[in-house]
């Protein structure tokens, strides 16, 4: 188990290095640089100063080397857009994204998996309705879903239509602040969770259908086990293997989906920060955000492996050898 965890940790480190280095190089090589943010009327001396400060006069590999050396000492450079070190910006944004992603993942899990069990285990009008709804949720791109939810929220007033906290909570205490965050969470979380819940539902349904045709399930049925107990005690757990395997990917998908959702709903998270950094070619902020994205992905992958480890005895036995 320890060897397994160490292997995953080494993989995570490699992933973070590869992702952040690639992000830095690609940002550097893409047309335009951060001085474009100064506008077409920028003074040449201001452009020159910015290029010097952000190492844009060095060749890309030398810049990458310099950045990596500093990053090893946990100095990820400065952000051009925010004129402050990248690390605290990313820490704050990553925390906000983690809250959003965890909520979305919880919604998607508790919605998608039970619905998948229902649709995968029987054919009924309800199952058909759920399948239809899943297809709709899968087809709506996150941009449209978030705009639609923002529109609904602004028209009905049921939920705040954007941001993470409201102006009214500025001087309120911690309990009020937490409640306020909780009121702001459902909108972006739903925009992220609905397509994911639909994905979970489809996968779980497929896995369930395959599992209930396995000989051990048929044998249990022949022994007189009720249908409900059969689903819960015999079929559900084995069917979770495929779900566990995609959990890591789901976390990665949440992060990429959060780009547009956070942007539209003004959620101050990592996706929005990275989107703005990319648009402005804020090179060190892009690299820092990518590194944090890599950490999220590695974490998701680890969670996925651990879940699989818990759900599938064959994996446990395999790792013990």
């Amino acid at each position: 188990m320890i060897r397994f965890l160490l292997r995953r940790l080494a993989f995570a480190l490699l992933l973070v290095i590869a992702v952040s280095s690639a992000a830095l190089l690609l940002t550097r090589l893409a047309p335009g640089d951060l001085t474009s943010e100064l506008g077409p009327r920028a003074r040449p001396e201001d452009v020159a100063r910015a290029r010097e400060r952000f190492d844009l006069n060095r060749n890309p590999l030398a810049q990458l080397g310099g950045w990596a050396a500093r990053a090893a000492r946990l100095d990820f450079g400065d952000s051009f857009l925010y004129d402050r070190p990248v690390s605290p910006l990313i820490r704050r944004a990553a925390g906000n994204t983690a809250v959003l992603a965890a909520t979305a993942l919880a919604i998607a899990t508790f919605l998608g998996i039970p619905l998948g069990v229902v649709t995968g285990s029987r054919s009924s009008a309800l199952a058909a309705c759920i399948r239809g709804a899943s297809l709709v949720c899968l087809s709506i791109p996150p941009l449209l879903a978030s705009l639609l939810l923002v529109f609904l929220a602004s028209r009905t007033g049921w939920l705040p239509s954007g941001g993470m906290t409201s102006v009214a909570a500025i001087d309120a205490g911690w309990p009020a602040w937490l409640l306020d965050v909780a009121r702001h969470l459902p909108l972006p979380a739903l925009a992220l969770a609905l397509p994911l819940a639909a994905t979970f539902e489809r996968l779980q349904a497929q896995a369930m259908t395959e599992t209930i045709h396995q000989p051990f399930v048929v044998a249990a049925l022949a022994r007189g086990v009720t249908w409900r107990r059969l689903l819960i005690d015999h079929a559900w757990r084995p069917s979770l293997r495929s779900m566990c395997a995609i959990y890591g990917l789901a976390i990665g998908a949440l992060l990429s989906g959060s780009f547009v959702v956070e942007y539209v709903t003004a959620w101050p998270g990592l996706g929005r920060l990275m989107y703005e950094a990319l648009r402005a070619r804020d090179i060190y902020l892009v690299a820092g955000c990518a590194a944090m994205g890599g950490i999220f992905l590695a974490f998701g992958s680890l969670v996925s492996d651990l879940l699989l480890f818990a759900a599938d005895p064959r994996v446990r036995e395999g790792s013990g050898k």
């Binding site: 239509s161 941001g163 102006v167 942007y263």
Partner: peptide, 19 residues
């Protein structure tokens, strides 16, 4: 209070909602 709302469409919706 100056709220930072990156998307102009969302900004308009929040203006309409009185936020």
């Amino acid at each position: 209070v100056y709220e930072i709302i990156p998307d102009q469409d969302a900004e308009l919706l929040r203006l309409q909602a009185g936020e």
